[in-house]
């Protein structure tokens, strides 16, 4: 399906890569928040983090809460802006781009075409139904709305989202229901890289299992995954490799 083939994008800040099997290389990434509202207080998020994510693999990030796991994912996605270091992403066309330095428009292109992000919190759009919200990334990539809704409906069924919620407004959903909308929204487009921040946090064990299956399917299609989970057992079961953060530093 063409819509699942990320479109090559052009960009300014990218260079040509040597053929590498590592789509994502994080080097010496550093992030500290400076809170001017609190008199310029510095809140370190993480420090000097480096790792590689293998193509088509699942890289798990473990660590206690407050260890900087979620911030790291947000830095890769550019919701947070790293202070220093690099996040090198290997584009479909073989060239590379540093997501820390990339322009806003380049990041938007990459978010549309290549990198997805799922948090445990859904950001509902006012007055947009669950099915349309989840279908939106597909439509943005050029799929007909009807076809996109069909595909989302299949996935909603798989994560057992009650049918009467499909055309409901997600702002009224429970945490677990919202999370499933979020996951389906991200998984439907099969991005080349998927960043998962506690994707199963609010789900019952049987739903967790279904989500694990879906994540496995994404992986089989070639999606590289980087996931943060506090459930160590689940993380170890899913991951090809696990790195551990402690107080913002990589310790394993």
């Amino acid at each position: 399906m063409s819509v699942f083939t990320p479109q090559p994008i052009t960009h300014g800040a990218a260079g040509q890569s040597s053929a590498t099997a590592l789509p994502l290389r994080v080097r010496n990434l550093h992030k500290t928040f400076t809170l001017h509202v609190l008199g310029g207080k510095h809140v370190p998020a993480f420090h000097d983090v480096s790792f590689d994510a293998p193509a088509g693999g699942f890289l798990g990030i473990a660590g206690a809460s407050g260890s900087g796991k979620s911030s790291l994912l947000k830095c890769i996605f550019r919701t947070y802006l790293a202070d220093s270091g690099s996040v090198t992403w290997n584009l479909t066309d073989g060239s590379e781009i540093d997501l820390v330095q990339a322009t806003d428009d380049e990041v938007l292109d990459i978010r549309r075409d290549e990198i997805g992000y799922v948090s445990q919190f859904l950001r509902p759009m006012p007055r947009v139904t669950a099915i349309d919200l989840a279908a939106r990334p597909l439509v943005e990539r050029g799929m007909e709305r009807a076809e996109a809704r069909e595909r989302i409906a299949d996935l909603f069924a798989r994560v057992r989202l009650p049918r009467d919620l499909w055309d409901g407004l997600p702002v009224l959903f429970s945490g677990g229901e919202q999370q499933r909308v979020n996951l389906v929204r991200a998984l439907a487009v099969a991005p080349r890289l998927l960043l998962l921040d506690e994707p199963t946090a609010s789900l019952s064990p049987d739903l967790q299992a279904e989500v694990v299956t879906l994540i496995g399917e994404a992986r089989d299609r070639g999606t590289t995954l980087v996931g943060v989970m506090h459930d160590t057992d689940l993380l170890n079961r899913l991951s090809d490799q696990v790195i551990v953060l402690d107080q913002g530093r990589r310790v394993a």
Partner: peptide
Amino acid sequence: GLTDQILEDPRHPYTQL
């Protein structure tokens, strides 16, 4: 910057305010 970045990681004192 990106809107989500401005809202979640504002850097200028005024933006933070």
